[in-house]
Design a protein around this nucleic acid. Structure first.
Length: 298
DNA sequence: AGTAGACCTGGTAT
DNA sequence: GATACCAGGTCTA
C-alpha cells in the first residue's frame, strides 16, 4: 500500500520559489529525517509526499534547486501549500545565523554540514497524529503506520481520481474503534490516539486555538492529552506550529548533548533547560542541526 | 520527588 | 528456523 505517484496526469515541473539550493542529503534530512512521516523516496530519485489534501513530488536539480509537480489542476493551491510547508516566507539564513554558532564550535560544524536545513511547517493536527505514533518507533515504522491510517481511514484527496488518500482527520479518527486503529500497527499507541480523538473531536476549536496560543500555554494543553509528554508536545509545536523555541529532547539529543557538550548523565528535563539557556529562543532550530549531525556522524 | 516496568509489535541480530 | 532484543516515549505503581 505504498503511496506512490503511480497515477494520472501531473503538472509541469516548477521551481520551488524561495527555497535555497541544497544537497540531496539535506533535502532528505528535511523531509525524511523525522520531522514528517509521509515523504517517500522514489526509485527515480524524486520524493513523493502528502499532507492535508496536498499531493506533490519533489525533484532535486543538478544545481541543487528543488522543483515540484502535483496532480494536474491543483497547481495553484499546491504552490501556496508548499510555500507554507517549507516556510519560504521565513528568513532561515538569518534565523540560523542568529544561533550561537560563533561561540559553539560543535554547533558551527553542524550548521556547516547541513546548509539549508530548516524546520517544516506542517498541519498541526497531522503533526500531532504523527508524533503520537512515534513513541519507541523508528521513522520507517512510523511512516508505515501513517500510510495504513490514510489507506484505511482517510478520505480520497479530491480531484485526483481517488488515487491518493489523506490522513484521517481527528473526527474521522474518533469514529474509528480502538481495534481498527490497533490494526494499523499502532500497538499501545492506539489507545492514546483513540482517547485523544475523543477529546479533540468533542472540541472543534481546541486544536486551532492550541496552535495559536503562546508556547507555554500551548504546551500545557498538549501535555494534557493521553500519550503526549514533553518530547511529543515539543515536536508538535516545533514541526507543526513553527514554535522554534520548542526543544524536543529525544534519545539523539540526549546522546549528542552528552557526547559533544559533556553533559553525560543529565536527565531530559535538565537537558531541556540547558538547551533553552544555551541555544536561546531558536533552540528548536539548533536542535534540528544537532539531531541531523548526530544521526549522520554519531 | 525520582525511578524501574509495562505497554504493542515488526524488524533485526544472534 | 526459533528466540531474544530493541525501537526518535509515556504512564503508573
Amino acid at each position: 500500500m505504498s503511496a506512490g505517484p503511480a497515477d494520472p496526469r501531473w503538472s509541469d515541473w516548477q521551481p520551488l520559489a524561495g527555497y535555497p539550493a541544497v544537497t540531496a542529503e539535506v533535502l532528505a534530512e528535511t523531509v525524511d529525517g523525522g520531522q514528517a512521516f509521509r515523504w517517500h523516496a522514489q526509485p527515480d530519485g524524486t520524493w513523493f509526499g502528502q499532507w492535508s489534501e496536498i499531493v506533490a513530488t519533489l525533484r532535486l536539480g543538478a544545481d541543487g534547486r528543488v522543483a515540484w509537480r502535483c496532480p494536474a489542476g491543483s497547481e495553484t493551491r499546491t504552490a501556496a501549500a508548499l510555500a507554507t510547508y517549507f516556510g519560504t516566507d521565513a528568513d532561515f539564513p538569518a534565523l540560523t545565523d542568529a544561533l550561537p554558532w560563533r561561540t559553539d564550535a560543535h554547533l558551527a560544524r553542524c550548521l556547516r554540514d547541513f546548509p539549508g536545513l530548516r524546520i517544516l511547517r506542517q498541519p498541526f493536527g497531522e503533526t500531532l497524529l504523527g508524533f503520537l505514533c512515534s513513541a519507541t518507533k523508528q521513522i520507517v515504522q512510523i511512516k508505515q503506520m501513517q500510510e495504513l491510517l490514510a489507506a484505511r481511514h482517510g478520505a480520497p484527496v479530491p480531484g485526483t481520481g481517488g488515487a491518493f488518500r489523506r490522513l484521517p482527520t481527528w473526527p474521522e479518527l474518533a469514529a474509528c474503534t480502538e481495534a481498527e486503529l490497533r490494526a494499523c500497527q499502532l500497538g499501545f499507541r492506539a489507545r492514546y490516539i483513540w482517547e485523544t480523538a475523543q477529546f479533540v473531536a468533542a472540541r472543534p476549536d481546541w486544536l486551532r486555538e492550541t496552535e495559536t496560543l503562546p508556547y507555554p500555554e500551548a504546551k500545557d494543553r498538549l501535555l494534557g492529552l493521553p500519550g503526549v509528554g514533553e518530547k511529543v508536545a515539543d515536536c508538535v509545536l516545533l514541526f507543526g506550529a513553527g514554535r522554534l523555541e520548542a526543544f524536543p529532547v529525544d534519545v539523539w539529543i540526549l546522546k549528542t548533548l552528552g557526547r559533544r557538550y559533556a553533559l553525560d548523565g543529565w536527565k531530559p528535563p535538565q537537558l531541556a533547560q540547558f538547551g533553552r539557556a544555551h541555544f536561546g529562543p531558536l533552540a528548536g532550530l539548533a536542535q534540528q542541526f544537532l539531531f541531523a549531525w548526530e544521526r549522520r556522524h554519531g
